[in-house]
Nucleic acid binder design. Structure first.
Length: 493
RNA sequence: GCCAUCAUCGUCUAGCGGUUUAGGACAUCGCCCUCUCAAGGCGGAGAUCAUGGGUUCAAAUCCCAUUGGUGGCACCA
């Protein structure tokens, strides 16, 4: 059963998909899911200079990766509403039609002022401590004046004729009642001289034609809303409900941007974040449940989400919390799933060379041993590589565990004992290895730690790593013996 | 400059007039567990609820002002 709710994510393809954009897409998606409505993807590519097909591709890939699937949009165009690219819509005259209506009804007019002239008006207004706006110079041109302008070779933009008095108001789902004075608004441009609609116009026309019931977007659009409302009104169209989401800020309190580090979803993917973690984290940026629940199952998030629990105050992006959450999601997965995720990541980041020579069965086991320590998928190679490479002895580790006065005698003893008495191949299991090590400790009257640590450093080159005996079991007796021998030769000859 | 908007621990937040000595989560610190690192468990510290005025028997919660932050003010979206 499909509900009546229709929402959309309408990015402009002028770069990577920003983390703030993902949050907007997510909230739209969640709302659509929750209300069993329709989530639409519309590409707002009316900025001809900056829009690229490549960017559209990136956005689509990113949404796909996040599984923020759209019921309508590129790849799934419903004839009733298609096309879903604004430039394609422009080609078939959709916007021109409503421009004509607006002009005819006196809600819009041709303006022949050049950008330079308009800029001067703005400067003057600013000087007078007024909002910098167009002064309506061409609003009441006579037919003859218009002809003259055109004879001069001037091209026209279409401007909306803003009422001089009164105010326009609306009820925002997250912000409540919002009101703007018309006098402060200017006769903004609906259609550029090249015939391409501006954002404010195209957005309204499409939201209407695509029967959007709710417009959920970033709070940076709130001051565009009164302009859009005026267009709805002039055309006699029913208005959608608005929900303006608070901004996402960087650590310095300014709106999150490139200078704060990673802002593109793709970068998070490359870093090895899980889509579930990113989504869970973003959901909590500006939304919460009454009990401040942190972790949500997929369906649970949809079920509990609601627009009226969205927070109107801006939220600072906290990468430490995201990292924690990613660890949580990694631990929730099975080791096999992590292995698959890792291989996907290797492929995605084109780093096949890293694992080329690694035995995949061993890799799976190694990942399993390090599972709970993984915070990012990209951490995996450095966590497990010692299983596959010749031991690289960490200097601090050998200094402390092999060479220090306190440790060197017992270390030498333990390693030599190991060389001679390690359990046989067929019983080379974690349990018997632990028994073996504890026996040595008891026998020689040394602490278990003095047995465990040298073996660990000999076998892995480091002081930290997975559970020692499981690690040895996974390596196998031959490999363990080989490694201990190398350590003995190097440090105890 | 104008307009809008926001304001609870460092961060995300709960709170909707009395149940609040303001709760949870991340981060941080300590202890426990332990073969290391993690993970986990327990506990600590951390918020005069931006400030100042009201309203009320009672305010973090309602109102006003101030301050500060952010956003917008394009033939960008």
């Amino acid at each position: 059963m499909s509900g009546n709710i229709r929402v959309r994510f309408a990015p402009s393809p002028t770069g990577d998909l920003h983390i703030g954009g993902v949050r907007t897409a997510l909230f739209n998606w969640l709302y659509a899911k929750k209300e069993k409505g329709t989530f639409v993807l519309r590409i707002e590519d009316t900025d001809e200079a900056r829009s690229t097909d490549q960017s559209t591709g990136i956005i689509i890939d990113a949404l796909n990766w996040l599984q923020l699937n759209w019921q309508e949009g590129p790849g799934n165009e419903l004839p009733e509403y298609a096309p879903y690219y604004q430039m394609k819509r422009k080609e078939i005259g959709i916007y021109q039609k409503y421009i004509d209506i607006l002009i005819e009804k006196g809600f819009a007019y041709k303006c022949y002022c050049t950008p330079d002239e308009v800029e001067k008006m703005r400067q003057q207004a600013l000087l007078a401590k007024l909002p910098p706006k167009y002064n309506g110079h061409c609003a009441n041109l006579t037919e003859e004046e218009r002809k003259n302008k055109e004879a001069e070779g001037r091209t026209a933009v279409i401007r909306f004729k803003m009422p001089k008095e009164g105010s326009i108001e609306f009820d925002d789902i997250v912000r409540g009642h919002v009101s703007f004075e018309n006098a402060l608004l200017d006769d903004f441009v609906l259609m550029k001289a090249n015939g391409v609609p501006t954002y404010n116009f195209a957005c309204v026309v499409d939201d209407y034609l695509m029967k959007m019931t709710h417009v959920i977007r970033g709070d940076d659009h709130i001051s565009n809303t009164p302009r859009q409302l005026h267009i709805f009104k002039a055309l006699g169209w029913e208005m959608p409900k608005f929900a303006h989401l608070s901004m996402i800020l960087g650590p310095d309190g300014a709106r999150l941007s490139k200078r704060h580090g990673h802002t593109s979803v793709l970068e998070y993917r490359r870093e090895g974040y899980l889509r579930e973690a990113l989504i869970n984290y973003l959901a909590l940026l500006g939304w919460s449940t009454s009990d401040s629940q942190q972790l949500f199952e997929h369906d649970e998030l949809i079920e509990k989400f609601s627009l009226d629990r969205c927070n109107s105050s801006p939220a600072t992006f906290d990468s430490a919390k995201l990292l924690w959450m990613n660890g949580e999601y990694i631990r929730k997965k099975s080791a096999d799933e992590i292995y698959d995720l890792f291989m996907d990541w290797i492929y995605y980041t084109k780093q096949e060379n890293i694992v080329e020579k690694w035995d995949k069965v061993l890799l799976k086991k190694a990942i399993s041993l390090e599972h709970e320590k993984i915070k990012l998928i990209k951490d995996i190679p450095s966590l497990v590589d010692f299983f596959f490479k010749d031991v690289v002895f960490d200097e601090a580790a050998t200094a402390k565990v092999f060479l220090s006065e306190k440790a060197k005698d017992s270390a030498k003893l333990v390693l030599n004992e190991s060389l001679n008495r390690l359990p046989a191949e067929q019983s080379f299991t974690a349990d018997s290895l632990e028994l073996f090590a504890r026996n040595i400790a008891a026998e020689k009257g040394i602490k278990t730690g003095q047995v465990f640590h040298p073996i660990r450093v000999a076998v892995s080159g480091r002081t930290q790593g997975p559970s020692l005996f499981h690690m040895m079991e996974v390596m196998g007796k031959d490999e363990v013996l080989k490694r201990i021998k190398i350590a003995v030769d190097k440090y105890f000859k």
